[in-house]
Structure formats: C-alpha cells, structure tokens
Amino acid sequence: MSNNGLKSGSNLEKVLKAGHFAFTGECGPPKGANVEHLKEKFEHLRGKVDAVNVTDNQTAVVRMSSAAASAIMAANGIEPNFQMVCRDRNRLAMMADILGVYSLGVRNMLCLSGDHQKFGNHPQSKNVFDIDSIQLIAMVKKMRDEGKFLNDEDIDEPPKMFIGAAANPFADPYEFRVYRLANKIDAGADFIQTQCIYNMPRFRDFIKMAVEMGLTEKAYILAGVTPMKSARMAQYMAKMVPGMDVPEALIERLKGAGKGKQAEEGIKFAIEQIDEFKEMEGVAGVHLMAIEWEHKVPEIAERAGVLPRPQVD
C-alpha cells in the first residue's frame, strides 16, 4: 500500500496508528443552508479533536447534507468524519456521494444503518435500506482496496477512506452485541465509535469480551461519551431513546448536584469516564458527542487532559 502503509492518510488514522489516544468530536449540520452557523459550531472544535463527525440527517430530521457540511469543514482545515446512513440512499447514491466527498477532501467516513424515519420530521417518507450498515462497510472497503464499484466495474481513482462503524454495547440482545461488532470489523471497519456510554460496568464487560475475541487488535475502538446537561436530559434519554442505557444512579447523582450545578456534574462524570477510558485495555480513544454543546468541547478536552492534540506526519 502506498501512503506509508496508511489506508487513507487521514489525520485520525495517523493519530491512531501512531498509538495516540484519539479524541474525536461531533457536529450536526444546521437545519438550513446557514454556513456561518455551521462554521461557528465547528470552530469550537478546531485543534481540540482529531476529527469531527458530521451527522447525516440525524434522528431522521432533515438538515444540510453531511456531504456538503463535511466538504465545507475540510475546506476550512478541520478534518471531518463523514457519516452516511442507509436509510436515505440506495447503493448508486451512496457510491456517488462517497466519490463526491472524497474528491472534496474527505478521508474518514462512518457507516450507519440510520434511525428509522418514524423518529424524524418526515415520517411519511419512503425508507431505502437498499443495503445495510455492514454491507456499506464492505462496499467502501471494496471501493478503496479493490478500486471497484459494487458491480465489479473499475473506479477511476478509488476513494481512500478510513472506514468507521458504530457499535451499541447497550442494545439487545446483549450477548450478541460483540458478535455484531465482530461482523463489522470482518466487513472492513478500521475504527469503531460506540454509542454514548453511561453504564460503565456493562461497557467494561463488553470491551473485555472484545479484547478476548481479538477484536481490539483488528480495529480501533473509540468509546462514546456525551456529557449530560441535566438530570432531565438523563431521564429523557433513559426513557425515550431506544437502546440507551442510563443507570438510575447517574440520574440521582445529577439530581443531587442541585439546581444550576447539574451541567457541571454531568461534565465531571464525562471527565471521570475519559480518565478511565485512557487506561482501559482495548479502548483506543474517545468520541465526544457534545450535542448542541460544541462550545463546551474545549473546556472538556482541557480538563480531561487530552490537549494538545498530537501532530502526526
């Protein structure tokens, strides 16, 4: 492989390959064509993270496309992690968009099934699911490594993507989650970003299984962290978000912090988590999803001791 043995040459890949503890962030594109708003959001993350996930119609709510927002980010010198869901596009549109974003400088992508459109603001829409997330991973790998489209035709300048996938250790059936992770890695995922973790005992158990199965040798696993802004947010997530595991003890802890101090308590918990992940066998980094809280990322990164971010050539 050219490019010094790198698959994509992305910053995230270089950081992980050099053995640094990776730190990625997230940015949801605006509900409109407001580029200034987008820039304002991702500027908070500049220099604080190794790459920024750009969500793709997250929770099935229509927004500026992740492709365009990723390209704008790349053009502004911040590395995007382009998210793509299987809900909204068939294989033609997916391959076209992968080539498109690659040509605009995108080097990481995260392959997802996507929340069902029933959750979103256009529940009337037709869902696509031509291929699923595992088939998407395999497709991107084929495009990159074999230089071929799904139909085996040659690609004129293959897209060299660093391939990511998601894992939710907290969905059911619990015993199967690590096998699904294994399937994603077999399909070609280079890195994994997990669902937000709140139940630490369960995550420790999950990562232990992944280590025992040798999965953490084959792919980099980034632990998902979302700081809670309030006890109410925690309660909402516990109740309303399928596949989210928020222990009662955490809700109590936030409540106990008292009025006006819950956000700080949420950040404290997130920092404790990050501290533990740094030492945890099998965890290669943290993916910080500070939802509509991008401006807090510099502070959290600072206090978690992950700054400055490594520069790898």
Binding site: S113, H116, K118, N127, D132, A171, D172, P173, P242, G243
Partner: peptide, 21 residues
C-alpha cells in the same frame, strides 16, 4: 425488520422490541 436488515439487530433493539414502537 423495520429496516430490512440482513445483519441485525440494529442499535435500537431493546427488550425484544423494535426501535420504531
């Protein structure tokens, strides 16, 4: 499967129920 997944279950599966309802 609400998403016709050939490799499931997705991350929304909880208590034997689908994420949609």
């Amino acid at each position: 499967c609400s998403k016709s997944l050939q490799h499931g279950p997705c991350g929304g599966s909880a208590d034997g129920k689908c994420e949609i309802a």
